[in-house]
Design a protein around this nucleic acid. Structure first.
Lengths: 217, 217
DNA sequence: AATATTAAAGGTGTTTTTACCTTGTTTGCT
DNA sequence: AGCAAACAAGGTAAAAACACCTTTAATATT
């Protein structure tokens, strides 16, 4: 069954990119851009009045509600709408994280329009879109030992808060005070993260978090 | 004098954004996209065979040769071509840096197509494009004390290399070895940067550099 | 009830980072 | 030639970061 026209929604906080992509996609006769949203919140509003969407192209790095959260929300509330993650980075863990959140494909912003077109119709016809990027990441995540058996990295709330605090000029003593725990305790968070992620310094942790979207600049 | 059609070149490493923008701009009857380039190097090649460009829309964060370098090169080799910086971030120092490198305007990727259109023709007719972002940055840079009298932050080559090395898990000892200088010398770089930028830790330096594009993730 | 797991916290020691002060050398300026 | 500025480098000391090992209390697990 060849679906007539794919109804697409775009979610990205950069208006120029969003409008540009919309203009680009409208050149394909088999694609219709139903609406655009600048973030997760706006998506929630617009999908309500127009739920007949086939595919959402979702940026990952957005302020307020980012692509992970928005994707998670979509899979819970509109499980039939397919989501393709659009990102600038090709970090394995980010790809895995998006796929786990419910995305059916992952396309870089460096890709060509025709690859995007292919991704959209692959998702519609096969239910997923897989390219070298995704395949490699999936395989790596299965083979990786830096994770629990299920192939994912899990962080406690405290660890995530600690990680964000690390991206500042606060000392660990000040972070401990900020979080209301003993200095030794944040030292535990640090040691746990260092060993799990195979990191040797605070700078390394900050860089790791930034690359994968756990820390916001 | 109303220029017939503005001949534009796009420089951005993200193909989807570039193509999208191209498609968007081609909807304006008074704009013609002459060519696209994925980075500074490709721009250097293409401008040679097609130098009749009115305005270049230049992304700042690109690998290999970034927007700063490319803008500097353009002002030296093709001083008549106007450049508008396109960026995701609205950091004051970045804006100033691009303007000093020769850019005639600064537009965020969050902007609307009509603002971009306005910027292009403002640059062509008035020679520059100024919006609230640019005005505020210019004023701040004049009033700021974190700079030399001329209102700019200047870094030596070694300092820039050192800064980039700071965004790693290398210790200062290893950085010194990497750079072929004494440990005390990189300590000088660090102290100079810390005091000039009012920074208290290596993490702070890395965050400062990332926000302003001096350090690449 | 006994056992395993986990989070919080302490002890101790080493390495790294940071701060401040000083010296020699080069470079450029007048 | 004389002087100032800039750069590389050394000394020292304190603070912060890092590593490793142990203890306690609260939670599960069986």
């Amino acid at each position: 069954m060849k679906p007539k026209t794919a109804r697409i929604a775009l979610v990205d906080d950069h208006t120029l990119f969003r409008n540009g992509l919309s203009s680009l996609l409208s050149e394909f006769t088999d694609i219709e851009v139903a609406f655009e949203a600048c973030g997760g919140k706006e998506l929630q509003n617009k999908i309500e009045t127009d739920p007949e969407i086939d595919v959402i192209l979702m940026d990952i790095n957005m302020p307020v509600m980012d692509g992970f959260e928005a994707t998670l929300w979509m899979t819970q509330h509109y499980p039939l709408v397919k989501i393709i993650a659009l990102s600038m980075y090709d970090e394995d863990t980010t790809i895995i994280k998006m796929l786990r959140a419910g995305a059916c494909g992952y396309v870089l912003k460096e890709s060509t329009p025709s690859e995007l077109h292919k991704a959209i119709f692959s998702v519609l016809e096969k239910g997923y879109y897989s390219n070298d990027l995704v395949s490699a990441s999936v395989i790596k995540s299965i083979h990786s030992s830096n994770n629990n058996g299920a192939g994912q990295l899990v962080f406690s709330d405290k660890e995530l808060i600690f990680m964000q605090h690390c991206a500042s000029e606060l000392t660990y003593k000040e972070i401990a005070h900020e979080m209301g725990v003993a200095v030794r305790t944040v030292d535990n968070y640090r040691e746990a993260l260092f060993s799990r992620l195979d990191i040797k310094s605070r700078v390394g942790l900050v860089l790791w978090g930034l690359k994968r979207g756990y820390i916001k600049l």
